[in-house]
């Protein structure tokens, strides 16, 4: 089971590295923000998997923080910084 968890963590990390391409390319600020939202979800999954792997069960609380932060950043972006990159 440990190996399966490690492979899953590596795959998620790989997809994240793939997503950074979208921040580099743009073209608009919205596209860049989408990658940040993607990493919110991937961050939750990664934290849960690492928590199971290392036996640190407090990491489930951290996954909750990640989940809430994704929404917070999206709202801050839409309300405050919309169109800042045009």
């Amino acid at each position: 089971m440990t190996l399966a968890l490690e492979i899953l963590a590596t795959v998620i990390m790989l997809t994240v590295a793939l997503g950074i391409y979208r921040i580099e390319r743009g073209p608009t600020g919205t596209d860049r923000m989408l990658s940040a939202m993607l990493f919110g979800t991937s961050g939750v999954a990664l934290t849960l998997v690492l928590g199971e792997l290392t036996g640190l069960h407090g990491l489930r609380d951290m996954a909750l923080v990640f989940a809430l932060l994704g929404a917070l950043t999206a709202v801050a972006f839409v309300k405050r910084a919309w169109g800042a990159d045009d």
């Binding site: 921040i23 600020g29 860049r32 990658s35 940040a36 910084a81």
Partner: peptide, 10 residues
């Protein structure tokens, strides 16, 4: 600037 901010969050 905006790209730097997104990069910083990530």
């Amino acid at each position: 600037l905006f790209k730097s901010v997104v990069m910083f969050i990530i």
